Amino acid sequence: MRQTPSLAAQRTPVSVLGLGAMGRQLARCLLAAGHPTTVWNRTPAKADALIAQGALRARTVADAVAASPLVIVCVLDCEAVHQILGPDGAALSGKALVNLTSDTPERNRQTARWAAEHGIAYLSGAMLVPPTLLGRPEATILYSGSHRAHTEHEITLKGLGGRAPYLGADAGTATAYEVALLSLYYAGLAGMVHAFALAGGEGIPAEDLTPHLDAILGHFPSVAASMARDIDTGQYSGDADVLAIHTSGLAHIIKASQGHGINTDVLRAVKGLVDRAIAAGYGDAEFASVIEKMRE
Rank of each mutant, 00 (worst) to 15 (best):
D239V: 13
L243N: 11
L167P: 11
D170W: 06
H194G: 02
E202Q: 13
V223R: 01
H194I: 05
A228R: 14
I216M: 15
S183W: 03
D170A: 03
S226A: 15
I231V: 15
Y186A: 05
A164N: 10
S183K: 00
L189A: 12
T175V: 05
L209H: 07
G238C: 04
L209C: 01
G200W: 04
G234H: 01
G161H: 10
V223L: 15
V179Y: 00
Y236C: 05
E207D: 14
L213K: 01
A215W: 07
H194S: 04
L243F: 03
P211D: 07
V193N: 08
E202F: 13
A228H: 12
A199K: 12
I231T: 11
P211R: 08
L243I: 07
A215E: 01
H219I: 02
A190D: 12
L198S: 13
L198Q: 11
L160M: 14
G234E: 06
L198G: 03
T173N: 02
H212M: 11
I245M: 15
A187K: 05
A199V: 03
G172I: 04
G172A: 08
M192F: 15
G234T: 07
A176N: 09
L243G: 10
L182F: 15
R229D: 03
V223D: 00
G161M: 06
D214P: 00
G162K: 12
R163D: 03
E202P: 02
A206W: 14
L184F: 15
A197L: 15
M227D: 02
S226T: 09
D230I: 00
A190Q: 09
M192S: 03
A187Y: 10
P221R: 07
G234A: 04
L213S: 01
I204T: 05
M227R: 03
P211Q: 05
G191I: 02
G188Y: 14
A215F: 04
Y185H: 09
G161C: 08
G201E: 12
P221W: 05
T210N: 05
G172M: 08
S222H: 13
L217M: 14
V193H: 13
G191D: 10
Y166M: 04
I216H: 04
A195L: 08
G188T: 10
I245Y: 02
L184H: 08
Y177F: 15
D208Y: 08
P211W: 06
A176C: 12
G159E: 00
R163S: 10
Y185A: 09
L160E: 05
L198P: 06
P211F: 08
R229P: 00
P221T: 06
Y186C: 01
I231S: 10
S237H: 09
A176T: 04
G188F: 13
S226E: 08
G203Y: 04
A176S: 14
S226L: 13
Q235N: 14
A171L: 06
L184Q: 13
D170I: 01
A199F: 13
L243T: 11
G162A: 02
T210H: 10
Y166P: 12
A240F: 15
I231C: 12
V179K: 02
E207I: 02
A215S: 11
V242L: 06
V242D: 00
A206D: 12
G188L: 08
D230C: 11
